[in-house]
Design a protein around this nucleic acid. Sequence first.
DNA 1: ACCAACCTGACAGGTTCCTGAAGCTCGCGG
DNA 2: CCGCGAGCTTCAGGAACCTGTCAGGTTGGT
Lengths: 219, 219
Amino acid sequence: MRILLIEDDIVLGTAVRDQIAADGHSVDWVTRLDAAGDAMAVAAYDLLLLDLMLPDGRGIGFLKTIRNRGDVTPVIILTALDQISDRIEGLNAGADDYLVKPFDLSELTARIGSVARRYSGNPNPIITHGALDIDLASRSIHRNGKPVQLTAREWALFDAFLARPGQLLSKTQLEDKLYAHGAEIESNTIEVHVSRLRKKLGADVIQTERGMGYRLGPS
Amino acid sequence: MRILLIEDDIVLGTAVRDQIAADGHSVDWVTRLDAAGDAMAVAAYDLLLLDLMLPDGRGIGFLKTIRNRGDVTPVIILTALDQISDRIEGLNAGADDYLVKPFDLSELTARIGSVARRYSGNPNPIITHGALDIDLASRSIHRNGKPVQLTAREWALFDAFLARPGQLLSKTQLEDKLYAHGAEIESNTIEVHVSRLRKKLGADVIQTERGMGYRLGPS
DNA sequence: ACCAACCTGACAGGTTCCTGAAGCTCGCGG
DNA sequence: CCGCGAGCTTCAGGAACCTGTCAGGTTGGT
């Protein structure tokens, strides 16, 4: 499951991110609302964990915005005890659940699991894309029935495409997704990884849009 | 046999867990229904022990839910004497047996054995995986016909793989499974145990996905 | 034809993993 | 009370593999 964590507290954020990862989900962590917007433009998430007190704006407004846009991604609000009114407002604004800080990490796991179950019909969905059978949960891919091994980076990249099938993704967007902000890249790394993906998955899996970026090819 | 215990009373839960473990089964113990759902999503169980009075909902509803889902895992209900009506409702909802609190632990052992026997066509189901014959009930493994001895940790680890064949499991996930939360590990213990498992069971039994984790290899 | 953008084989440095061996804990028997 | 052994964890050196970089070739647009 793909989860976007929006939380500016480094300590809490780290703990939450590690817990989610330990549960076997993939996490992107941002500390600002504008970064959250960017992330959501690049990848589709199955769940948002939204802190209501952030440096660059009120989380409630952000939530209302994405709901107005027609986005129905499940949202769990993280809120402090003295923000009960916010919490109610949050549920009204379209949140699915809330957690009061400080919360137990197992509590978090439980809520995530519950939301996940509510929104995913079958437990192990297999995506078929052309000659590829992709099982996101177990992280395995078969090409014409034969298993294909992807490395961690290759998965991260392919995952970005799968999250937005058919959508054009610029190299900058992909870099942001692969390299947790700060570690800057100064070469054609994305091109190289795309090349490696094509070699493993087939040349037509990822299409080049000259000067603009890449997109997942049609199945 | 893998058993999931759903019980919020710490004293009773501890006693039951220890008894089951003493009987040679592996137990996971949760105190809430949503945690139970999560556990069942992560691992397959051979038996559920379900307390009907839990903090986050009625056990009956939970039971009905998993039955509606088509799950036929045997369920034994744990109920207090003054909840006879619940008990009847429970059997109607798809429970296989019940125990009235307070119950004798030997009684528990007997019921577990009975349910287990009733539901496993053959008394000792043997899983065949490549050159391995695995008898979960008696915790014995034969490799090419020759018996192989596993230590406690090795069993726990191998069990984690057997519960989710083919699924990628991160080292963190495996640590969480082997070391009841809290006892943190700070070294390459998992790697070492994987190494020992491979030596005993064959090099191809567990596959490494560099940077991501391990998975049970194909048979 | 020219130029920019892109592709891809090769390679080196770094990370991750493997594994033998040493240290540790705990229970048991003497 | 001490020694012993089995199993578990830690450590360390080396092997295996990943991945960012580069360079030379290819493609596509104008």
